[in-house]
Design a protein around this nucleic acid. Structure first.
Lengths: 241, 241
DNA sequence: GGCGTTCTTTGCGCTGGATCAAGCAACGGA
DNA sequence: TCCGTTGCTTGATCCAGCGCAAAGAACGCC
């Protein structure tokens, strides 16, 4: 067992899909994987392509986006280390429903379709883990769906930022930085609004010293107040009587 | 094997979750199930309750709805015969994320948590099937999410109706009837808009003889034209050059 | 058969956000 | 260092759809 191998196993230990496998098994899984490195802005796969592999992020951040026939684009999610993406082959889908792009330089492991099937067959635990993870993703998406259906833009943007803080927040002197390049346009596609509206909202927050932001960069200075906005019941609710 | 048992097995044969099991195995599955009958408007389970069982619709129609802390309610989906609902126990969730209500008189089978786990363990095929079904639901929801984020109300309502025709369409002399009680309010909660807007849209369509509707009743007279509205790229697109 | 309840329709005014349109700022490659 | 590109801001305008309000219409219960 080469130390290099050991290192890779350690990485997989944090991946919930493979939870419950022992070192030898993990080693086998790693052995079947293909390591992939991509630099910033490179594409990992495109929407509509045949889904041949599924991926786990080792390091860096990947954006999953979808584009509608009418040209409207949305960002489905950002995946960070330990997370799955392009998991279509896990459940027998045909083509990738979205495009995966490296937002930062990043590395990932991937497995092809037949290996995936073999793994799940040999280790049913993997299939069950996959079921759990998919269930969580479904729950997440349901939440965001409801959000989109019932809340107004400012709240949605606030929530998106709160979520991103959880996924990629990094303490800096000013506050908490979203630790990857994030433009106004990105936030708009993440929350179902327009670049302009996001810009206005962030400007307003900046005036209130709630955030500090720059080009593709957002720092939350007062996370708690952002959460307040995110959870505020709004004009439909019963705030400040 | 009593004929009654046979009959129930036949019902399960159409359920994709159990595809691949033989008669004896299906019989066992049916044996472990609890049959449940509910009349119109009765509740099967409520949002937030501990998820003890998962269900398969045998007959009738069930509405899955979610309510947000601010009181806004949305309808996640309608499940018809052969479809799963309340499938939280399949992937180890804790509480039901929504409320299930019988929209028509309906019957279902359900299994408790431990039985579910045992089934998946004994028949890995069931776990794989579950993975596939969950994957499809995820894909569906992603589609609807994008719809909500990028299309305007009229198109969303049209799409919702097209989908409902697929799920519960029944040919009648006038056209295709959505074969369960469906109010304007329901359509609004299904498409993320208000009762009033839906009413206006349906009234306009009625004027154009595209549909015929009444109290909790919708008949699509010209399905093709409805599809056209649903797919129209709209003012953002490049239609009719 | 009368009556309360539940759905639906429709008018009107308002507004959150989209759209359109400039112009400015920061970055990165040559 | 300069210049082209990409991202950000901000004003002005417009309108789809929401909220409110009030009046039918169809049901189902007693």
């Amino acid at each position: 067992m080469a130390p290099r191998q050991d290192e890779r196993i350690r990485l997989l230990e944090g991946v919930r899909l493979f939870q419950g496998l022992n070192a030898a098994e993990l080693s086998e899984v790693v052995g079947a994987a293909k390591r992939l490195e991509r630099k910033r802005n490179a594409t990992l796969f495109r929407q509509g392509q045949e889904a041949t592999r599924f991926f786990v992020v080792l390091d860096g951040r990947v954006r999953i986006s979808q584009i509608a026939p009418d040209g409207h684009q949305i960002i489905a999610r950002y995946a960070g280390s330990g997370e799955l993406f392009g998991c279509v082959p896990l459940f027998g889908g045909d083509a990738y429903p979205g495009t995966a792009t490296a937002v930062t330089h990043c590395t990932s492991l991937s497995w092809d379709r037949s290996t995936t099937a073999r793994l799940m067959e040999r280790y049913p635990r993997v299939a069950v883990n996959a079921l759990h993870l998919l269930g969580e993703e479904l729950a997440q998406l349901r939440g965001r769906y409801q959000e989109l259906a019932t809340q107004r833009v400012e709240q949605r943007v606030a929530r998106a930022l709160v979520r991103l803080v959880g996924q990629a927040g990094k303490r800096v002197e000013e506050g908490v930085l979203i630790d990857f390049p994030l433009s106004r346009q990105d936030l708009a596609e993440l929350t179902g609004t327009t670049l302009h509206t996001v810009s206005r909202i962030l400007s307003a927050w900046e005036d209130h010293e709630l955030i500090a932001s720059g080009r593709r960069r957002v720092v939350i200075r007062r996370p708690h107040d952002l959460v307040t906005i995110a959870e505020d019941l709004g004009p439909g609710g019963h705030t400040k009587t």
